[in-house]
């Protein structure tokens, strides 16, 4: 029986409203599929590009314990990228195509990774703030409507729990250290605070995708709600470290039960999104380089596998 698109869309929305998960082979509106491919792949790209700023510090980690922790963390990010690409692939797009979009600058990834990691304290600040912000988003996404995406998020959240602790522990150690170390920590907070707040995206008034995403339960909270949640959680953690958040307007608002905070520099936000952040070019260059230099390896492995299976067929036939 053929149904009209309107009927199918209505049924689809009813399923979502009832809290059902959508699975890969289920009928879904084309826009739902496209939105998911875009969002999941952006998320995957963010994991992969996110390996670079921290990866730069693996060889310079100050102790063996810190080195293995950082190495394991950056490796996890590769794993998380992989889970997410797999989730996107269920929607009928290949990983190579997604990489192509990333490498040609067509796809977006989280702008935070276009900022440079210039000191060891940045490993602390990234783990604490950037992972902290990401976790808020990701916990929400474990209940997202698309099954493969939600399952990838469950796995990721389980593994991520050590990332933020790893970062915060670095911050604690620095803040309990020498004057120079504490300055290093404060400087990192100064540089990463505002970009971390920007990670939640434009304000609700400016956000083009929020309404539809909420309706489809891709998102369950708005950008501004999530940002507020992050600030409320993070301020006491900064106080515990004895560090000052670089926002003169930051103040507890008794009436709202939340922190008030200053205006985000949206000009900077859009500048980085549009490709003119401090490291956009370096990040894409690094990804392209790895991909291009790996081409002969991927081809060789495939050629070898084909030869082997041809051999098997021949030996069976004989």
């Amino acid at each position: 029986m053929e149904h009209s698109i309107e009927y199918l869309e209505k049924q689809f929305q009813d399923r979502i409203d009832r809290g059902e998960n959508i699975e890969a082979k289920d009928w879904m509106p084309e826009k739902y599929r496209k939105t998911h491919i875009r969002q999941i792949s952006q998320h995957a790209h963010s994991e992969i590009v996110g390996m670079l700023p921290e990866g730069n510090w693996i060889s310079r980690a100050p102790s063996l314990r810190r080195k293995v922790a950082l190495l394991a963390k950056v490796q996890d990010e590769a794993g998380h990228g992989l889970y997410l690409y797999s989730a996107a692939e269920t929607l009928g797009i290949s990983r190579d195509e997604l990489f192509h979009q990333l490498h040609t600058g067509k796809a977006k990834y989280s702008s935070i990774f276009n900022y440079p990691a210039v000191s060891w304290a940045d490993m602390g600040a990234i783990g604490w703030l950037v992972d902290g912000a990401a976790i808020i988003n990701q916990v929400m996404l474990t209940r997202t409507s698309y099954g493969p995406y939600a399952r990838a998020m469950v796995r990721i959240c389980k593994e991520e729990s050590f990332h933020q602790r790893q970062g915060y522990e670095i911050m604690i150690t620095l803040c309990n250290g020498t004057e120079e170390q504490k300055e290093m920590a404060q400087d990192a907070l100064n540089r990463w605070w505002w970009p971390s707040l920007m990670m939640f995206g434009p304000t609700d008034a400016e956000s083009t995708h929020t309404e539809q995403s909420m309706k489809w339960k891709i998102k369950r909270k708005t950008n501004d709600e999530l940002r507020q949640q992050f600030i409320d959680i993070t301020i006491p953690q900064a106080e515990f470290l004895g560090l000052t958040v670089p926002d003169p307007d930051l103040k507890w608002n008794e009436e709202r039960g939340h922190y008030d905070f200053g205006e985000i520099d949206w000009t900077e936000f859009w500048q980085v999104v549009k490709g003119y952040g401090p490291c956009n070019k370096e990040r894409l260059k690094a990804r392209n380089k790895a991909w291009d230099e790996g081409a002969w390896v991927r081809e060789a492995a495939l050629a070898y596998a084909e030869k082997q299976s041809a051999k098997k067929i021949i030996s069976k036939a004989v």
């Binding site: 992989l82 889970y83 797999s86 692939e89 990983r95 399952r151 990838a152 796995r155 991927r298 492995a301 495939l302 070898y304 596998a305 082997q308 299976s309």
Partner: peptide, 11 residues
Amino acid sequence: VGSLHASDAEM
């Protein structure tokens, strides 16, 4: 548990 890419079953 999920999926991945590999050139052959062994990999």
